[in-house]
């Protein structure tokens, strides 16, 4: 049998974390949900972290779907680790687990004044952790990737006549690096691919343009490029003559230098 997840794991897995009081066990506050031994009506006493959609429910009673291992009774106070389930006239959430409030010290220690910002910060930290390279810098140019763009006007690539709805329409930005926050990058510049497509699949990805200055959370694209001459930093090893090409596809992979908070908070960059 697998070990129960730790409080730290639960904080990572659950988006909506709150201290709550069980108002009625085996009950439901939403007509669409049939009450069962796995449902309870819980008053949200204190929200630790929340997505925007659930941030309004402090002080209100919501329906919690319990796991098969969970048992609660009226009057119990717990820290609930949950994710969203149903939205209607009210809301219902799925519990991953609940802990006694006294055993949730790490949870409440991590809480900030704004539950939405607390969750956003936690997710951004995880996002940066998952990245390969984080730099600050300025976009100096944007162009079609090498080998593309030779087709007829409007062609998606030289090999493809019929376009696809979800084509990414990749572009490559050259970013002049001013600071490396995470990872190793010997060059003065880094090439960053981004999808220029307005398709729903890619719309929220960063759209880079010359002159943009900010902070970049980069992920290896699987491509490399040969670096020559002045693009190579002084004293860089020979192996640096071939370097990774990175990509940005997540909305939080780029933050403008003028924007406060966000990556600046995670990377400890002064405002």
């Amino acid at each position: 049998m697998a070990d129960a997840p730790s409080e730290t794991d639960l904080l990572k897995q659950a988006q909506f974390v709150f201290k709550g009081t069980v108002r009625q066990a085996s009950a439901s506050a939403m007509p669409a949900i049939e009450a069962s031994e796995h449902t309870a009506v819980v008053r949200v006493d204190q929200i630790v972290q929340a997505p925007a959609a659930l941030s309004h429910y402090g002080g209100q009673e919501i329906t919690v779907l319990l796991t098969g291992d969970e048992a609660v009774k009226s009057g119990d106070e717990f820290t609930f680790f949950t994710n969203e389930w149903l939205f209607g006239k009210g809301v219902a959430v799925r519990s991953l687990a609940h802990l006694p409030v006294s055993a949730s010290t790490a949870t409440f220690a991590a809480a900030g004044p704004d539950p939405v910002r607390t969750l956003a910060h936690r997710q951004l930290v995880a996002h940066v952790d998952d990245s390969d390279l984080v730099v600050s810098g300025r976009v100096t140019s944007v162009s079609l990737p090498e080998g593309e763009g030779a087709g007829a006007p409007g062609a998606q690539s030289p090999r493809r006549l019929a376009p696809r709805e979800h084509d990414a329409h990749w572009r490559e930005a050259v970013v002049e690096v001013s600071h490396v926050h995470k990872g190793v990058h010997p060059g003065k510049t880094v090439v960053v691919r981004f999808p220029s497509s307005q398709d729903r699949m890619w719309f929220s990805a960063p759209k880079l343009a010359p002159g943009q200055e900010g902070h970049f959370v980069l992920h290896k694209s699987g491509r490399t490029r040969r670096v020559e001459g002045p693009a190579l930093a002084a004293g860089a090893p020979a192996a640096a003559a071939v370097e990774d090409v990175y990509s940005v596809v997540h909305p939080e992979d780029f933050q403008s230098i003028a924007q406060p908070g966000g990556l600046k908070s995670v990377l400890n960059i002064p405002e």
Binding site: M30, A52, A53, N83, L86, F87, G88, K89
Partner: peptide, 20 residues
């Protein structure tokens, strides 16, 4: 916000809808 994607559901002939 996270995890599974939602669908709209109704069990009253479309007069009211939930997101599941």
């Amino acid at each position: 916000s996270s995890g599974a994607a939602p669908i709209f559901v109704s069990n009253d002939g479309g007069q009211t809808w939930l997101l599941n």
